[in-house]
Amino acid sequence: MASIWEYANPVKFLRTSEKVLPVLWVLAGACLVIGLIWGFFFTPDDYRQGSTVKIIYLHVPAALMAINAWLMMLVASLIWLVRRHHVSALAAKAAAPVGVTMTLIALVTGAIWGQPMWGTWWAWDPRLTSFLILFLFYLGYMALWAAIEDPDSAADLTSVLCLVGSVFAVLSRYAVLFWNQGLHQGASLSLDKEENVADVFYLPLLVCIAGFVLLFLALVLYRTGTEIRLRRTQALIRREAARA
């Protein structure tokens, strides 16, 4: 049984991800097409919210992935700090733009949904505010990556920022809850059956979430591959320069 750490070798990672990626793209595409068509055209309108409820098929998966992307960056940063695998650091770097896009999708679809429902594009509701703060954290993280020239120092510093930022993100979440109890409905998905959305909405929603997860994985693998190739090119150029 091969250890998972073998994939920490960039070259091995590239070889494996090249095999996995086509499958991921196809699966992600299939799930999204099926889930969105099912959700948009073959589910009944909500008795209160009408057809506007259908934006849930974009809003909820994007919001879930916005948080999960940050969690993935947190784990990857920890692995880099402890085991110093370059793939891990580059995967964290690659996930940030995907995560920030997911956050932006969640915010924009939320605003579009909120306008007819609450009569306003934006409200300083705890959930909305928390996502806005998450968005700021993503921006800071990416700006720090972009500002430091030496890739290893950049990986070190952004990893610590990710750890510290996570603590403050959780703190902010509680602070915001304390600050304003909001308009937003409860969680759309939870283990407690009573709170869940009805089954007719639930199944296509699950398919959409699966599609977003697969799309996220594919994008991160693809972008990590690009980052690895960039580092590999730079390393080769340096070696040739040293030989000359």
């Binding site: 070798n9 960039p10 070259v11 370059h86 890739p151 290893d152 690895i228 580092r231 590999r232 730079q234 390393a235 080769l236 340096r238 070696r239 040293a242 030989r243």
Partner: peptide, 15 residues
């Protein structure tokens, strides 16, 4: 240091 140095630098992981 020679070009293919035995000492591990962070570049080496990518070669």
């Amino acid at each position: 240091a020679r070009a293919q140095s035995a000492a591990a630098t962070s570049d080496e992981a990518f070669l």
